Amino acid sequence: MIQVVPLIGISCCFRTIDVANIGQVRHHTVYEMYADYVRDVLGAAPVLIPALYEAADTAALAVLTSRLDGLLLTGSPSNVCLRPDDQADHGFAEVEGFVGSADLKRDWTTLPLLRQALQDELPVLGICRGMQEMNVLHGGSMVHELHLQQGRMDHRSDKTVPYWDRYGPAHRAIPQPGSWIANQLKQSDFEPDPDLSDLQINSLHTQAVDLPGNGIEVELRAEDGTIEAIRIENAKSFAYGVQWHIEWHHDCSPLNVLISNAFRAASQTRAHRLQGLAS
């Protein structure tokens, strides 16, 4: 098979940043690790998607998904502020009593974009906030301040350590019986330690999935029961979400390798199919 380089779209956030000698300037932003992950781990070409497409602009979103081979929904300090609402304009409404920082321009881009991507059978990987967007789109609920919930660990990062150290292993992830990842681990002949110490993941989030949405399968949980990975059951291509930052220390866990390999393979398959249709 001829080697092709898939095009993978990366969702951007919308932020106002202080620029020297200018002042506050609005930017579409993405952390460099996401682009590096797409290029170096997935072997694909990263395409940044600015947070400017409103839900009504379905034609532009359809063009995007028709030309991409994969979609990476990135993490962010902001929480998902919109929820599906058939009675609201464009099918989404803002959360009442919202807690945390919001990024409405991103919400109005990623939620309709994800809906279009799934319709067009585009492979999807959601990371941190990206996983939460997958759950929200399917009607799932969220916990905004997980650390305040009784019986839950503090899943926020340790701000007293250097930036790069915050992405080190923080706690275990437990595969759920019958899940896709449990089957992948079994087929790979990987034998987890009895205490699952080799299935460690990082943890840098305040918001988390509360109740899974329709068609959302829980794949992994933390020791305190927090949902750490989900899969869209009826998706016609790879559609997986992880709460941790898989783009960091990629080779440190078999979870990272198996999930990344599956996303890469699905994106390459689509790239070959689209290239064949275009030739």
Rank of each mutant, 00 (worst) to 15 (best):
P6A: 03
P6I: 07
I10L: 04
S11E: 00
S11G: 02
Q24F: 00
V25N: 01
H27I: 01
H28F: 00
E32G: 01
M33Q: 15
M33I: 02
A35L: 05
D36T: 05
G43R: 11
V47N: 00
L52H: 11
E54K: 10
D57Y: 10
T58N: 11
A62R: 14
L64G: 06
L72C: 04
L73Y: 01
T74F: 12
G75Y: 11
C81I: 15
P84N: 09
A88Y: 14
D89T: 11
H90E: 14
G91H: 15
S101N: 08
S101F: 08
A102W: 13
A102G: 13
L104G: 07
T109I: 05
L113N: 02
L114I: 14
Q116V: 13
Q116P: 01
L122F: 05
R129P: 00
E133L: 01
G140Y: 08
G140W: 06
L146T: 15
L146D: 14
K159S: 13
Y163S: 10
G168A: 10
P175A: 09
P175F: 11
S179F: 12
A182T: 11
Q187K: 08
P192H: 10
P194I: 15
D195Q: 09
D198I: 15
L199W: 09
L199N: 07
Q200D: 13
N202R: 11
S203P: 02
S203I: 07
L204E: 07
H205M: 04
T206H: 12
V209D: 02
V218C: 06
R231T: 08
I232M: 07
E233G: 05
A239P: 00
V242D: 08
W248S: 15
H249F: 13
H249M: 15
L255G: 11
I259Y: 04
F263M: 08
R264S: 08
A265C: 06
R270Y: 05
R273I: 04
